[in-house]
Structures are given as C-alpha cells and as structure tokens.
C-alpha cells in the first residue's frame, strides 16, 4: 500500500523507531533489572498505577515537543510521537522482561500487565529522548524551541528531569532506609546541599543551552533554583505516593523521605537541560 514516494519517509521513520528502541532500553534497563519494580508492578494500588499511566502521556507529548525522536511540526504529530514512543517502550519492556524470564506464560495477566505498565513509562521516556541523545541530527526546530523555551517550558523540562532521575531510585528500599538513618539535622543539611547543587548547575551550565543565565543572582535563585527544588520535591512526593511509600507513615518521616528522594530529583531537574 505504500506509495512509491512514501518509501523514503517510511525508511527514515523506521530508523527513528530503531533509535527510539535503543533509547528505551538504555534509559530503562536499570529499572528493568530492579526487583522492586517487578514487585511494585503487581502489588501497588491499581488506581495509582492507572493515574501514573495517564500522567505519563502528557509528559511524553511535552518531551516530544522539545526533543522528539522525529521532527515534529504540529500538535497532532507530537501526540502521535508520544503514542508511538509508548508502543516502542512497550515492545522493548516486553522483550527484555521475557528474555530475563521476569514475565512468563504461567503468570496471571494481572501480574504481567502490572509489571509491564510500570516499566513502560521510563522506557517510553527513553524512546522519546533517544533523538536528542543517540541521533546526531536533532531537528533545528526542536533545538530552537529548546533554546527559546518559555519559563513554563523550562519548569516542564525540570519536572521531566526530576521525575526521570527520581523514578530510577524511588522503588528501592534504600530511600526509606536512608531516611530512617538520618537525623533531622542530616535532612536539613541534605535539603540545603540539594539547593546549592541545583543552583550551581543552573548558574554554571546556564539555562537555554550555554547562554548566559537570565537575570541577577537572586532572580535566578528565586525563579529557577527555589522553584526547581520545589518541583523536585513535589515530583518526589508524587512518586512516593504512587509507590505507596507514604502510606501509614508519619508526616515527619514522609517529609524526610521526600527530601532524600528530592536529592536525585534536584539532580534530574538540574541535568534536564544537558540531557535534552
């Protein structure tokens, strides 16, 4: 059915898909090989899992807009890219989990669907990011959009970065354990360290590629660092809630775990610009 003049476009698109497949595996393999992820997949609250899947879609659309694995011109294309990234992530996750015998045919569909759904989110994010990381040719338009990203766009990218990095460690027991081991003073110091680190990245790396940081020291501190850290903490709290880590835990402990996870979250927010 492919018309003759469509062959080249299809070939290019197939290349993009292959690149996305590689990206999905590269970005998701630490989580694919984390046992807490498989367990969470079947025992975590189903509604929270459904909400998480629904949160991921607009995130993929936004990421596709800034760094899609295909040149995108229109809103419809970004949505299509997000959906195809989901398909690629899904296939990559199923392939790897099957290879490693983490999903087998004698498991029930509930168990299999749970394991896959949770892991497809980081995999499809990886599929979307593959364009900016693996394919040398990033579209000039995406590049320009990235440079000219609005303030809201910058915050979106920080959120995506925070989610991705925090998500990589959030399922492990260690997050809870670290929070239990730390005193209130440790927690406070970690929060300050996260802020300083985030600011250092924002300040030296600069937002908008390698441009000068916009505005004075205090302006950047307030508009990017503080807000960025708040986003990292909110994302951390959301991920912890999704995984049921906040259930039946006192509010002080929740705050501590959130700050612990906020550390990689802040790192992700700071690095979002470098990765994209």
């Amino acid at each position: 059915m492919l018309r003759r003049h469509g062959i080249e476009e299809n070939r290019q698109y197939a290349l993009g898909l292959a690149r996305a497949f590689g990206g999905a595996i590269i970005f998701a393999f630490p989580l694919l090989m984390t046992m807490e992820m498989w367990w969470l997949g079947f025992y975590m609250d189903r509604l929270r899992l459904a909400i998480f899947l629904l949160t991921a879609l607009p995130l993929l659309v936004g990421l596709s807009y800034y760094a899609g694995f295909e040149d995108t011109f229109r809103w419809r294309d970004d949505l299509m890219d997000a959906l195809s990234a989901y398909a690629v992530g899904f296939i990559a996750v199923v392939a790897v989990l099957t290879l490693m015998s983490i999903i087998t045919l004698d498991q029930t569909w509930r168990e299999i669907v749970g394991k896959i759904t949770l892991l497809v989110v980081p995999a499809s994010m990886g599929a979307t990011l593959a364009r900016s990381q693996l394919g040398g040719a990033k579209s000039a338009e995406s590049e320009q959009r990235e440079r000219q990203a609005s303030y809201a766009g910058e915050l979106f990218l920080m959120m995506a970065g925070a989610l991705f990095v925090a998500f990589n460690v959030a399922p492990t027991e260690e997050m809870i354990l670290i929070a239990y081991m730390m005193t209130e003073w440790h927690t406070l110091a970690l929060a300050v360290a996260s802020l300083v680190m985030l600011h250092a990245f924002v300040y030296t790396v600069g937002f908008g590629g390698q441009e000068d940081y916009p505005g004075s020291f205090f302006s950047v501190l307030l508009r990017f660092t503080i807000v960025g850290y708040a986003i990292a903490l909110l994302v951390s709290l959301y991920v912890l809630w999704t995984f049921g880590r906040t259930d039946a835990i006192g509010i002080i402990e929740i705050a501590k775990i959130t700050i612990v996870l906020g550390f990689p979250g802040a790192l992700g927010a700071a690095l979002a610009r470098l990765v994209l």
Binding site: N10, L53, L83, Y86
Partner: peptide
C-alpha cells in the same frame, strides 16, 4: 510534511496499547 504510513501504524499501536492497558 507527509505522514509516513509507518508513523500511523506505530501511533495506532501505541493508542491501542494505552487504551488496552
């Protein structure tokens, strides 16, 4: 830009998977 047939297929597959899951 013309949308390649493959893009339609991949996106449709993604939509089916999202809705199905």
């Amino acid at each position: 830009k013309k949308t390649p047939a493959l893009e339609w297929i991949a996106s449709a597959l993604g939509l089916i998977l999202v809705v199905g899951v």
